[in-house]
């Protein structure tokens, strides 16, 4: 009938399969548990507020580089992909899609209904984790900075949704479960591991090509800008820098986890004038594009598919 009825059925299925319960427990332990541990044990009675943990960029004592948002981003992305990657292909392989499409549901209803259903599953479980974390902080004497905390929750929701979208795209485009699975892990590997290599490699290749063509070479600033731009095309990195902006100035957020060399070269340039494509709103638009574009691509492919 509508996107809504497909979404509702999908959500109910997640309830029945205990996937929702499992995820909720997982996020309760991960977000709620880490918060309780931090405020109850590590910073006991230190009068900390929510930004102490969630705005955290290095481990207490500065022993190693750690960002809470970075950790949470990796986990959310993986959970979202795992939740979404089978959504359409599983029904295609089992044949339940024929039952679904025998009824007056359009293929658009099915793709976007799945998107809504699976997104809700991830968001609901994640929200429970954040709510538990909030009560843990309040209970353990930490102060909750509501503006930045709400921002963090909202951005985490957007990141999770973007990876559900990517999972739906993979699921809609694949012709077997094996394909969807390999695609999922492949993409996750690219976003989580390979991306920095790409971000470093592309400017080098461009530089080399320009040199070969006798067009001169890029300036150091241009190389670093290109590298940063590519870096923030990755939803995981976009999320991380947007979260950092909740806890500090935009320039610092854009140079979050940048190398010392990058900092030295570009900080002054950025402080003078931050290019619009490094503006927070622009980065947010990139994150939103990851939510909107993949399911549309998935639908366009699924629309043409022979089931």
């Amino acid at each position: 009938m509508t996107v809504e009825s497909v979404a509702r059925k999908d959500f109910r299925d997640a309830l029945r399969s205990r996937w929702l319960i499992g995820l909720t427990l997982f996020f309760a332990l991960l977000i709620g548990g880490s918060t309780a541990l931090f405020y109850g044990v590590l910073l006991k009675g230190a009068g900390a507020n929510s930004e102490t943990l969630f705005g955290l960029t290095t481990a207490p004592g500065g022993l190693f580089s750690f960002s809470y948002a970075g950790m949470l981003g990796f986990v959310l992305a993986l959970i979202a992909l795992v939740t979404a990657h089978g959504s359409l292909i599983d029904e295609r392989e089992s044949g339940t899609i024929k039952l679904l499409l025998s009824l007056p549901n359009s293929r658009r209803d099915v793709v976007f209904g799945k998107l809504v259903g699976r997104t809700l599953v991830v968001l609901v479980s994640m929200l429970v984790g954040f709510v538990i974390a909030m009560f843990a902080m309040l209970f353990l004497g930490g102060q909750v900075m509501f503006a930045s905390y709400a921002g963090q929750v909202a951005l985490s929701g957007l990141l999770a949704t973007s990876f559900v979208s990517i999972g739906i795209w993979l699921s809609a485009t694949s012709t077997s479960q094996r394909q969807a699975l390999f695609g999922t892990f492949g993409l996750y590997f690219i976003f989580a591991v390979l991306w920095s290599t790409v971000a470093t490699g592309v400017p080098r290749v461009v530089n080399w090509a320009m040199d070969q063509l006798g067009l001169g070479t890029l300036s150091m600033t241009q190389v670093i800008e290109m590298r940063l731009f590519i870096k923030y095309l990755n939803p995981l990195r976009a999320y991380e820098t947007l979260v950092a902006e909740l806890y500090g100035p935009a320039v610092a957020a854009r140079l979050f986890k940048a190398s010392l060399g990058e900092r030295l070269t570009i900080k002054g340039v950025f402080e003078e004038s931050l290019p619009f494509y490094f503006n927070g709103w622009f980065i947010l638009a990139i994150l939103l594009a990851w939510i909107v574009v993949p399911p549309i691509l998935g639908y366009l492919s699924f629309r043409k598919a022979d089931l």
Partner: peptide, 29 residues
């Protein structure tokens, strides 16, 4: 499909929904 009842070939039912829920879903749709 709004005016057609279909018994397809090579289909499968939703393992976790009851028979009645299947029929209710069809009626709603």
């Amino acid at each position: 499909r709004r005016r057609t009842g279909v018994l397809p070939e090579g289909y499968d039912v939703y393992d976790r929904l009851t028979g009645r829920e299947h029929v209710e879903f069809a009626i709603q749709s």
